[in-house]
Structures are given as C-alpha cells and as structure tokens.
Amino acid sequence: MSFVEPAERAELRAAVAGLAGKYGAEYYRARAKEGAYLTELWAEAGRLGYLGVNVPEAYGGGGGGISDLAAVLEELSAAGCPTLMMVVSPAICGTVLARFGTPAQRERWLPGIASGETIVAFAITEPDAGSNAHRLTTTGRRDGDDWVLNGRKTFISGVDVADAVLVVGRTEDARTGRLKPALFLVPTDAPGFEARPIEMDLVSPDHQFALFLDDVRLPGDALLGDPDTGLQQLFAGLNPERIMGAALATGSARNALDRAVAYANERAVWGTPIGAHQGLAHPLAQVKVELELARLMTRKAAFLYDTGDDAGAGECANMAKYAAGEVCARAVDQAVQTLGGNGLASEYGLGAAIASSRLGRIAPVSREMILNYVAQHSLGLPKSY
C-alpha cells in the first residue's frame, strides 16, 4: 500500500470535487427540506461514470475497486453532498451482485447500477433482530418454481428512489432443516411489498422506511447467486458498507472543518482573527489530526478489500468506521462552537449537520458493536454477548 494515491485516483477526486462544487451544500439542504432526493446530482454523476467506478467494465463500470468508489463518496461529502445511496446501491448491492450474481442477474442489474439509472436498496435490519443475521425472521419458502417472502424490515434507506431492494432473509436448508441466510432481489412494485416512511428529525434526502413483506411472490431467479453461499454473500457486502460509511463520515468532517477554518480566519474580534486564539485553534488542529488518521485507516481498509484480504479488511473497515464516526461528530461540534451563534443559523448549514453527524456513530453498525468486534477479534478477549 502506498501512502500516495495513484494519479488516476487523484484525478478522479478532482473531477468529482468539481462536479459536486456545482451543486454544493445549499443544493443538498434545499432538496432535503423539500423532501426530495439529489436526483440531478445522482444522474449527472452516473452519466460521468462516477457511480460505477467499482463495477466491472463488462457491465459498464470503471473496473476499479472500493478504494475508487470511497474516493468518490468522500469528495461528494466534502462538498456538502453526502448520500447514503452510494453506500447502498453501488457499494453493497453492486459488490454482492458482481461477486455472486448469476450471469443473468449481473447482466440485468449491474449496467443500471453503474450508470445510476437503476438504484437497489439494501434491507437487513429488523425491528427485533437488528442486523443480527442469525436472528432474522424474514423467510423465503419455495412454492413450485417461485419463492414466497414474508417478514418485516426497518430503517431501510432510499426505498422511495429504488427500483428494487436486496432483502436479507432466511430459507430452510434441505439437508439440515435449519434456516440459513439468503438474499432476494425484490422489485419495489411487487404485490405484497409495502414501504412506510419513518418520520425522522434528521433532515436528509435519504429517507428511511419500514418494509412489510406479505406473501411477496418472486420468480426462482430472484434468489441471488448460489443458495448455499448466502452468509458469504452477506459478509461480502458488509465490509464495503463500513468502508463507504467511513468515507462519507470523513468527507463530512472535512466539510465541517473547512467551514470552521474559513470562519476562524475571517471573523475578527479585538483586532485579530479568532483563529489566532488557541482556545479555537487547538481543537480545530486536533480535529485535523484525527481526521487524517481516520482517512488513512479508511484507505488501508479499502486497499485490503480490493486486494482480496477479507479478514484484514474486516478488522480495518470496523476501525475506520469507528474513527471516522468519532471525528465527524467532533468536527461538526467544534465547527458549531467556532461559529458561535452563527453555527446554528440556517445560512451556515451546520445546525442540521449536528444530527446527521451522529449517524456515523450509529449506522450501519454502532460504535459499541465495533468495540465488541475489536475486543474479541483483535485483542482475543472473551465474547461478551
């Protein structure tokens, strides 16, 4: 792993930053307040190939890896346009489909995911089981050549803009009689599929939904890939999810820090910019240090994933997600403190970021569960749950 990104990725970052700069935080906030999605930005990013940089070239993508896609999301977020759907559609669903989908499934879904013309949401979390794949109650049963799916999901992002949802359920193992994980591609217009919005205090263009699957009948090829590799498929999508979550959080932290630094350089009290005072300078400098450390771990996790080291990537992806979530929350908090009353004024857009910055500590996995993982797998301590 090089500590200097390849020239191609640096050029990709610059190009994405240029695109995102055309839209910016004002566009993001306006769309969020309208209850609308970032449709124009998403469509343009798709046309330019940025949404599919990790999708194989044979399916219209750039043939790159999660390192490249994470760079795209970080730059969008740094410009004030973070979107969870990049974590979900090209990263989780695109990765799982590329690695495990049948030839027909890859041909059906990947070109649209790469261009942004197709969006696939991801549904694992349930009201009682959370994201514990061994406790999920959503089940698929065979009925002739079809599958019939029943269950509930909660806090599923972007169903309103999605064409389909990759649903994590369980099926019966014919050999053991036990339930095993399985992934189903469910069109959002399928009979028996219902999505209800979850009212949130968070102002975001990425809306949350509760899903109700009531005898949703699906064709046999709706089951993704090999029925015996469901658990492997699931975990193949979770490392990219954490890496992309870290990229979104570090980009958002950059955005907050940039706003705070610009204000601290311009705002003068008693004849000197407020940034000259250590009471503000030191906390901002600390955020900068922690931000660069989080970015390095995110890049390491992406590098390990792209080179096929799933075990190493799992540890680093969790650590990156933890570090990025922490520094994002700290960056926004310190930015608000630096701006004082202006930090809560709509003109500066930081007040709404207070709520959204907490997401990095909660989703897609809480910092407490990450610490459980590190304690058990990195330190070899006894399992606590």
Rank of each mutant, 00 (worst) to 15 (best):
E194Y: 04
G351I: 00
E199T: 13
I362M: 11
P273E: 11
G341Q: 12
L284M: 13
R152C: 05
A276D: 14
T125M: 07
G52Y: 04
V365T: 09
V374D: 08
A317V: 05
A79R: 04
I274T: 06
L97M: 12
A247H: 08
D68K: 04
K300H: 13
G312R: 05
M86L: 15
A256V: 02
L296Y: 10
G52E: 02
A345T: 07
G237F: 01
P181V: 06
A164L: 03
A294T: 05
N255Y: 12
G169M: 07
T338C: 08
R141H: 03
L51W: 07
L359V: 12
D310W: 03
T171D: 06
A264L: 02
E194A: 14
M369H: 00
E315G: 10
V165H: 07
M200E: 15
H282M: 11
V53W: 06
F212H: 11
A195E: 06
R178K: 15
E11P: 00
R108Y: 05
G351H: 10
S89M: 03
T176P: 10
V55I: 15
R106T: 07
V4H: 03
E266Q: 14
G177W: 09
M200F: 09
Y23K: 00
D143V: 09
S204H: 04
T154G: 01
A363E: 14
G312S: 09
F3Q: 13
T188R: 08
S356Q: 13
G251H: 05
R170N: 11
R170S: 13
G230S: 09
F209K: 01
G130N: 03
M369D: 02
E266F: 00
L183E: 08
A14N: 04
A246P: 01
K22A: 11
